[in-house]
Design a protein around this nucleic acid. Structure first.
Lengths: 251, 251
DNA sequence: GCCCATTTGTCCGTATGTATG
DNA sequence: ACATACATACGGACAAATGGG
């Protein structure tokens, strides 16, 4: 149990390239989310916050102005600043952890095409996971956006075995791939794996998901095989503000 | 399959508060990570990139300068800019998905104290998960940093049932809690759940984890019960650059 | 060696946003 | 509200190195 060296708060705030008032806004949003600043409670005065964080008054006013726009707090001349009772909250989406859940989520979301490949391609990008099975001869590439109640939840690049795609082209162009695969008679999934990492949105996915560039997204890579070959590979991006993963540790 | 409205690239880049050159650096880093820019290949010239992204030459130079510092590319006057062969890669950490893995990870990481509560407290913060069992009378709060090879991997706030803590105080102050709990004779875990979400680092955790404020972290909330009561609750933060979650979808 | 197109490196002037006191 | 300082972003001009004919 050593005592680690830690930089002080001012150093941490100044080494980031993000504008100071946005860093502070993030910290205050956190204070509310974690219940350190409770609903209907008054938050510390500007004087107190200036002393605590060692920043200028205008910087704090800018930061708090953001929280006010977002509806987290209300300010009153001479009264002070108070946390709102009803904090706006987001619908979280459980990332599937088995094939059934994958299909169920696919059924739930609407599908909009962004760019569909017109031709088959010969090879897949790096799976990022162990896979020692067989690849199909050719794949079709689809790029789409999945939506729920008009809100974009998932940007996806899907690769489907060409022969399978051709047999069910209309269905694959209309719905999420896992939904279609699950309803093909006689087709059984024998192997499927998934790897989740967190990265930043690129320009393309930021456009589609209505995010800023480099906003964090959960990147899900997923493949499925039938008895013989890899028939499905997808790289999905979910905005992390929607992402949740909950499970029993004692199954 | 509707055609969604999408803003153009310039709009996406300008609506973010993050400096433009940092957004571009993120996009380029992504191009390399995803194999769009391959090792030893020349990337587009400044002229070409200026046309593609509609930004000034100096802005691109700043962006590319960052990638050069990070060792992703090399530049040569008159020659062009090339992707490096050996991309620096990070060690990913598998987030545990059952109690055994939780204990195994705890065994792996060193533990440094940041702030240990001197006294017992009566109540726990909101679990963020369903739990209908019994709480213990009092809990002890510990705040620590978990390290591997000198690199901070995990910031944790742990709450332990007071009686259990008092019985094994020395052990709990020296090692990660799950490690200690797993080695207490006669103690069996009957229920344990975990919920993972992604949020931004606060000032405290950014200090400890050597991150910037609002850098994305995986927030893991986890509890465990013995036969009668909730004996362990933890809120953990992992820098998302280390986080990986891989599993079989057909168990 | 020489010219030339290409590409990166450097510098200037200006405007805007951020942060301080 | 103001004066000041600094980083960001733009557009332009020119220098320096490279490689091909």
């Amino acid at each position: 149990m050593a005592k680690p060296f830690l930089p002080n708060a001012s150093e941490v705030l100044s080494r980031s390239k993000l504008p100071l008032y946005l860093q502070l806004a993030a910290e205050f949003r956190r204070n509310i989310a974690q219940g350190i600043w409770m609903p209907d409670q008054q938050i510390p005065s500007l004087e107190a916050l200036m002393a605590q964080y060692q920043v200028a008054r205008m910087t704090l006013r800018n930061a708090i102005g953001i929280l006010e726009e977002e509806g987290y707090i209300r300010r009153g001349r001479g009264k002070g600043t108070f946390v709102q009772r009803n904090i706006p909250n987001v619908t979280e989406l459980q990332i599937p952890s088995n094939w059934e859940e994958t299909v169920a989520l696919s059924d739930l979301l609407g599908t909009e095409s962004i760019a569909d490949g017109e031709h088959a391609i010969a090879s897949l990008p790096d799976l990022g996971m162990k896979f020692s099975g067989q690849y199909a001869k050719a794949y079709r590439h689809l790029c789409r956006l999945h939506v729920k109640d008009g809100v974009p939840y998932c940007f996806s690049e899907v690769y489907l075995a060409e022969d399978l795609f051709k047999q069910h082209k209309a269905a694959f162009l209309k719905a999420a791939a896992a939904s279609v695969i699950a309803r093909i008679p006689g087709l059984k999934i024998h192997e499927a794996r998934q790897k989740i990492t967190i990265s930043g949105a690129g320009i393309e996915s930021a456009r589609a998901l209505n995010l800023n560039v480099d906003d964090s997204v959960a990147e899900v890579r997923r493949y499925a095989c039938d008895k013989e070959k890899l028939i499905y590979y997808a790289r999905l991006e979910f905005p992390t503000k929607f992402v949740k993963l909950e499970f029993d540790l004692c199954p």
